[in-house]
């Protein structure tokens, strides 16, 4: 897919976005002056130390937080209108599956809420189960599955209603390295097949570089963007691409960005 070179239509657009929490210890600037545009079909990672606002920014896009300054548009409308139009699927840090529902029942949850017909619910559940390689596990309960499988089920749940945008907040943060590698590989395949726009929060440099077409490096106090790196890696990425010089060069630039962000704090 060479489409990456073509000018893409903008899906998410932030201009001078700021978010200040009023606390008893005075205002906390979670985000300040964040400007970023994300094109259709991009895979954008947000990386930075804790407190840099990467999760907060993702939550702003999802309209789970309300910015106090600047403008933010998602699919050409306000973030909250986009949420009400069910423009995105959101994957949280924990799988958060309902223990009283089977895997299929959990994936059906958003479909029930959105009023899909029973036939269509069943059809979509089957489809997304196969997208995340969980065919045949629909009737199991969450506790019968490993942590990695549960997280895959939660991704399937976010995909079930086929929103164009997928927002993921450190979805593999709690999993071990080996499982994480496998899931990252599977996620890239899934992205290639579905052509969704993905926003991905992580604190792992290799993960960000391996997955993304664009890496947004952020730094804390106040949360802001210090570097935006367009990846030069091809879209086809076997796991051993992580030994290539291009990969190492990007990882180096990310690390420099992170260090610079730390630097002007001291």
């Amino acid at each position: 897919m060479e489409a990456g070179r073509v000018r893409r239509e903008t899906v998410i657009e932030a201009r001078n976005l700021g978010l200040t929490f009023e606390t008893n210890d005075g205002p906390v600037h979670a985000l300040r002056d964040v400007s970023l545009s994300i094109g259709k079909g991009e895979f954008v990672s947000f990386i930075g130390p804790s407190g840099c606002g990467k999760t907060t920014f993702l939550r702003c896009i999802a309209a789970l937080e309300a910015p106090t300054a600047g403008t933010l548009s998602v699919n050409g409308m306000s973030a909250d209108a986009a949420r009400r139009a069910r423009a995105y699927g959101y994957v949280f840090q924990a799988a958060g599956l309902y223990p009283w529902r089977t895997i299929a029942g959990n994936i059906r949850l958003p479909l029930e809420i959105m009023g899909f017909s029973r036939a269509e619910q069943a059809e979509r559940v089957e489809k997304v189960l196969s997208l995340v390689d969980l065919e045949g596990f629909g009737r199991k309960f969450p506790w019968q599955l490993s942590g990695g499988m549960q997280q895959r089920a939660s991704i399937a749940r976010a995909l079930a209603f086929d929103a164009d945008i997928l927002l993921m907040d450190e979805p593999f943060g709690a999993l071990d390295e080996i499982v994480r590698d496998r899931l990252n590989e599977a996620l890239l395949k899934l992205w290639a097949r579905t052509e969704k726009t993905i926003g991905f929060v992580t604190h792992s440099i290799p993960e960000a570089v391996y997955l993304s077409t664009k890496i947004v490096v952020m730094s804390p106090r106040p949360g802001r963007i210090t570097d935006v790196i367009e990846s030069t890696l091809p879209r086809e990425r076997p796991l051993d691409i992580r030994d290539s010089s291009a990969f190492i060069a990007i990882a180096h630039r990310v690390r420099d960005g992170l260090r610079a962000g730390q630097g002007d704090e001291e």
Binding site: L64, R83, Y90, G96, P110, I113, M114
Partner: peptide, 21 residues
């Protein structure tokens, strides 16, 4: 947990749906 309530918010679930589901 707050995360579970946030999740239903992302589905734009009503209060009644949040209660029953």
């Amino acid at each position: 947990r707050p995360m579970q309530l946030d999740q239903l918010r992302t589905y734009n679930a009503t209060r009644a749906q949040t209660f029953w589901k």
